[in-house]
């Protein structure tokens, strides 16, 4: 391995460490932050880091900035698992009723073309859960970045977009049959 390659690999491992350790309320780092730590060629370092992450069952995802979708410096780089959650994993993610509520909210948002009135979502959720719990869950999902509320309307937030394969989820809902017995 040449000196240059070794340096690249060292930087790649550093990139993985940086991405894994949260330094703010949001996970991962912005492109400009990575540039500061890894140098100008940080995108090449990220390519090598992706290969290393792949070996560990992880992947690096780039979340474009809403205002400058083509600017890598403003994009957020996050580390994710490569495979979806298994039954034994989901407990460490959210509680059952919180996951189910997120599913209901995302479906309502999708069925309405990208946004849903908060009132309607609350009405739907209170068919299954008490109102006080619904309020708790909505606040938690907002805090975690799954949904965002603007003037009484709910939208998907960055985490839903990045973490959830909605096409697969919708397909499973359509194909769902309740087991009898």
């Amino acid at each position: 391995m040449s000196e240059e390659e070794e340096e690249l690999k060292r930087k790649a491992l550093k990139a993985l460490r940086l991405l894994l350790i949260e330094t703010s309320a949001l996970p991962g780092l912005k492109g400009w932050e990575l540039k500061k730590h890894l140098g100008k060629d940080y995108l090449n370092v990220i390519k090598v880091a992706s290969v290393e992450a792949d070996r560990l069952g992880m992947k690096i995802t780039i979340i474009p900035d809403d205002e400058a979708p083509k600017d890598f410096d403003r994009a957020r780089f996050v580390l994710m698992t490569k495979e979806p959650l298994t039954e034994s994993d989901y407990s460490r993610w959210l509680r059952i009723e919180e996951i189910a509520s997120l599913g209901l909210i995302l479906t309502e948002i999708n069925l309405r073309g990208g946004s849903a009135p908060l009132e309607v979502v609350i009405r739907t959720l209170t068919e299954k859960l008490p109102r006080w719990r619904v309020n708790q869950i909505i606040s938690k999902l907002e805090r975690l970045g799954y949904i965002k509320e603007e003037n009484g309307v709910l939208f998907k937030d960055w985490r839903s977009i990045v973490e959830i394969d909605e096409t697969g989820f919708m397909k499973d809902i359509i194909l769902y049959r309740r087991e009898k017995g």
Partner: peptide
Amino acid sequence: LARHVTPV
């Protein structure tokens, strides 16, 4: 839903 989630 959990089946289609790859968490950050």
